[in-house]
Design a protein around this nucleic acid. Structure first.
Lengths: 341, 341
DNA sequence: CTGTTAGCGCCTTCAT
DNA sequence: ATGAAGGCGCTAACAG
């Protein structure tokens, strides 16, 4: 029989017990190191289990224990750039804790999300992490769920829920402060879709840092899309109308890549004539740009790990609090803001 | 109590039965539409279940049924570009079949993989999909597993296993045939790490198409890394040493992006003077390039869906066969090979 | 039509 | 030190 058809059914504890000529209870104790079992008996059981490649049935165990050792990861959209690191962080944290993860992709569809939620509850997951695709608040799953829920990236609209989201305001500040520290004073901002909270929060942070330095934006901030194309078009326009600009804070690394292209076309040297900073620290884009791109990193993997930790705590009965928590971001300096020497 | 601490324990079937004043068995039948139940009784049960927000315990159900309705997705590396579409395709197909997916990321570590495998078996998953990060063959999980296994992307080294992998040879052919159809005759090839089967397979396909047209490569194929940097460096060198080249087949879209950059620097118009074709059809890179990048798409989502379908079939006892299956790829034409008019 | 009985695989008292 | 019995939540035969 081909492996793809699967072999016979898995061995059960009673199979092991029979083979070791002991009762089921004794076999159980021997395998779990529980109670008093004669060393020789224990060895017999262990051998039997080995020979049968016995693997305890986690379902049966869970039925008894009242906990399953599983959690649900309810994502809004796997495709995006942001899910994966968060998912990796969470999977990582849970893996260390012997917890297995159910992955559910709702594809941004509320119906599908509801469906997956029911499935997770029927699986009796011990907790749920809801990962959204934007930092805009999203509807709560509700307060009456039998398991703890943590919202990651997209915070819940309901302040009674616990939400972990990156601090875009701090990111905006950080970017501008770095540009100013680099000696720039005529700073512009090209960002993405203005309907995104991320765009507004970063802008607000940037404004506050600009004001704190007694400066003003050298040009009205520009918003449209999170794409390389827009970055190119916007930068071309900007550099023509405001040739005095000496730094551009971009709302994403994609935009920044477009900006770098147009700067090159316009004959501006980066970073000498023009400093450029991106956002997201997407290695693929940032490290392959020329020059390499300084960017803001939201520590998404860390965010995923923390979300998992909160779920752990909640499962263990530790009160994890509530409200929207803004997680710190960090600056990653590369050649687009500071020249090599 | 904050939601993050979870509410009380979930309602059970006996809770529902009690509330509806019927036996557990009757409640079960009523809820599952099984057996003969008086309409009025059924309604009472349904109401009771509704009021208690009863959700059947999938574990208890699975214990009885002998199947869990879950599958394991054992990935080698979530980070890469190739996992996600496959994972989406699989998740999608399973979702439609009421099957839930355990996600396990082995991080390219054999120990961790073994650990996750044990966990999946103890969860009594009905099947496993192993997704590798390269198209190079990988070690088999073995033939003695109690569940069907399908290998996706990375085929198993063991021909008794069922493996689904993209047809890189056909992709190489397709790329060259397209360039030739565009009237190009002095074709070069810049690809990635030559130790990858993907690099070799695409090269072999390309060679066969070149030969079939009675041509030869205009320059010795160049191999190094799958990066934009390498694409830039290689193209700069190539265009200087072989100015007659009128088309470049790139081993990845990243490489192609670098090639486009260098072509621009060298004053070559794309596609007029030089046609460029990439590989992977990574929207982010291909659609944002200038000009937009023609590329080969491996239909990874489709591959994921098919892998899921095979697991379905195997679960249902249908023999899914064995061996390495090469799935078709497709050409996506954009502006880097054919000029707009 | 409804309820009783017997498990699914495992763990945990409680006797022996 | 070992085993018998009960039960986790549910479903599938059977009785009634």
């Amino acid at each position: 029989m081909p492996s793809s058809a699967g072999a016979g059914r898995a061995a059960t504890l009673s199979d092991v017990a029979r083979r070791a000529s002991v009762s089921i209870a004794t076999a159980s104790k021997a395998l779990n190191g529980r109670g008093d079992v004669a060393p020789s008996t224990r060895q017999r059981v262990l051998d039997a289990a080995e020979e049968l490649t016995f693997t305890p049935n986690a379902m049966a165990r869970g039925l008894l224990a009242g906990r399953t050792g599983t959690v649900g990861l309810l994502t809004g959209d796997l495709e995006g750039r942001f899910m994966i690191p968060i998912l990796m962080g969470a999977e990582d944290a849970f893996g260390a804790g012997q917890i297995d993860v159910f992955l559910c992709d709702a594809r941004g569809d509320a119906i599908r999300e509801q469906h997956h939620l029911r499935a997770l509850l029927s699986r009796r997951v011990d907790g749920i992490i809801v990962v959204g695709r934007q930092t805009d608040p999203r509807p709560s799953l509700g307060q009456d769920l039998p398991v703890p829920v943590v919202y990651a990236y997209s915070p819940s609209e309901d302040p009674r829920d616990l939400s972990l989201t990156p601090d875009n305001y701090a990111g905006g500040r950080l970017a501008i402060e770095h540009l100013i520290a680099c000696g720039r004073t005529r700073i512009a901002h090209i960002s993405g879709d203005p309907s995104y909270a991320a765009a507004q929060d970063r802008l607000a942070g940037a404004r506050s840092a600009i004001a704190a330095a007694g400066l003003e934006f050298a040009a009205e901030p520009m918003f449209a899309a999170w794409s390389e194309h827009w970055g190119r078009d916007a930068a071309a326009l900007l550099l023509e109308r405001h040739p005095e600009v000496d730094a551009i804070f971009c709302g994403s690394d994609q935009i920044a890549r477009g900006v770098l292209d147009s700067a090159r076309d316009a004959g501006r040297r980066v970073p000498e004539d023009l400093a450029v900073i991106g956002y997201d620290n997407w290695e693929l884009l940032a490290a392959n740009a020329r020059p390499q791109l300084t960017s803001i990193d939201a520590n998404l993997q860390q965010l995923g790990r923390q979300a998992a930790q909160r779920v752990f705590d909640a499962i263990d009965g530790i009160d994890t609090g509530a409200g929207k928590h803004h997680l710190p971001v960090k600056l990653v300096i590369r050649g687009s803001t500071i020249a090599h020497r």
